[in-house]
Each structure stands twice: as structure tokens, then as C-alpha cells.
Amino acid sequence: MSSIKNLPTGTWAVDASHTEVGFVARHLMVTKVRGSFPEVSGTVTVAEDVTASTVDVTVGMASVDTRSADRDAHLRSADFFDVENYPTMRFVSTSFDGEELSGELTIKDVTKPVTFEVDFNGVQADPWGNTKAGFEAETEINRKDWGLAWNAAIEGGGVLVSEKIKIVLDVQLLKQA
């Protein structure tokens, strides 16, 4: 891992084609279902003191992709994301200590604090002269805290979908001129 202190100051845009906003949920309490949201945009403003940097990211909820059309349609419905009424999810940072990024996550007009564990993967120039930076981050939330409460009991005990959801980010940023 590179030192976060090597990250150039200024404004960076989320490079959506090289970024994954993913999630992992338990299904039937025995396996994991993974999904992602390909529609993501946002900016990171890196300050001289990297701990004063800010993040503002928006995710298009209708872009959810779990590799199952039926499941994706259910996730878009009022049972879960209700994308017709709440088309986006947003994260706005409140603090960064170099390893933990805290902020406010808004889903379905419910805003709650979350903290991501962050790994900085470095800065690199691409073959076209652009400066890119890479990060990985992870947190775990309880989906019920955001009103995502739908579930079904299963015959052998337990529920169809776990309450705890892991959010996994693999982010590439593009330095703005």
C-alpha cells in the first residue's frame, strides 16, 4: 500500500467505468449474494492536510445488478429501494483520519452515519496522460436502519435475506485539471 500522503491535492472525479460499488448479503443464511451499482458519480476534494479532504458520491439505485433479473426487479421495488420514489443513494463525508472515512449515508431519505475502513492503493498515470488514484473501502450496515425491512421467514429457521449488509468499494479516481 502507498502512503495516502502521496495523493495530490485538488479535485478528483469518480471514474465510474473503473469503480465498483458492491454489496454482499446472506441468502437463506447459508450463501452470499453479491451485487453492485454500476451507476456512480462523485467527487473527492483532497486538501493539503489529507484529513481535511471531502467525499461526495451519488449512486443510481436503479442500476442494481445481482446477475438475476427477477431479484434486481424486486430490489428496485417498494419492498427494498423503491427507486421510483428514491432514485439515488448518497454518501457525504464528515471526517477522514487517513484510514477511516466517516460520513452520512442516505438511502430512501433516511440518513445515518457510517464509517468505512479505507486502503489507499496508490497514484498512477495512465497511457493517455491522466492521473488516477485507487482505493478500497469496506463497511457493514444493518439495512433495517434505512427502512429496508422486507424479509421472509424460511422453513428451517432464519430468514431469506440477512439484516447485515457488507458494502465493498473498489474506487478509481481521475484527477481533474
Rank of each mutant, 00 (worst) to 15 (best):
D82F: 03
P87W: 10
R71H: 05
P127I: 07
F120A: 02
S93G: 06
E104A: 15
V123L: 11
M89H: 01
D65C: 01
E117S: 15
L75V: 03
N121F: 00
V114G: 11
S93F: 06
R67E: 06
D65T: 02
E84V: 08
S68I: 02
T131F: 09
T111C: 01
Y86W: 06
T88F: 10
T131I: 12
T106L: 13
V64E: 02
G129R: 14
N130H: 10
F116S: 08
N85W: 00
S95I: 07
S68G: 01
E100M: 14
A73L: 10
T88I: 14
R90E: 08
V92F: 02
Y86C: 10
F81V: 09
I107M: 12
S68N: 13
F116P: 04
D126E: 02
N85S: 14
A62P: 00
E117A: 15
T115E: 03
R76L: 00
D79V: 06
T131S: 14
N85D: 12
D82C: 05
N85I: 07
R90S: 05
R76G: 06
R76N: 13
N85C: 01
V114S: 05
R71D: 01
F91L: 13
A73W: 04
V118N: 10
G122F: 06
I107E: 02
D79Y: 06
S77Y: 08
E84F: 04
V110M: 11
D97L: 10
G60Y: 08
L105F: 12
A73M: 05
F96H: 06
L75T: 02
D82V: 04
N130K: 15
D97Y: 05
D97E: 01
S93D: 05
Y86G: 04
E99K: 14
V83F: 01
P87N: 00
G129F: 09
G122A: 09
G60N: 07
W128V: 11
F116V: 05
V64P: 03
S93L: 04
T66I: 05
G103I: 10
D70E: 13
I107V: 15
D65E: 12
D70W: 01
V83P: 03
S77H: 10
F80T: 01
T115S: 15
P127M: 02
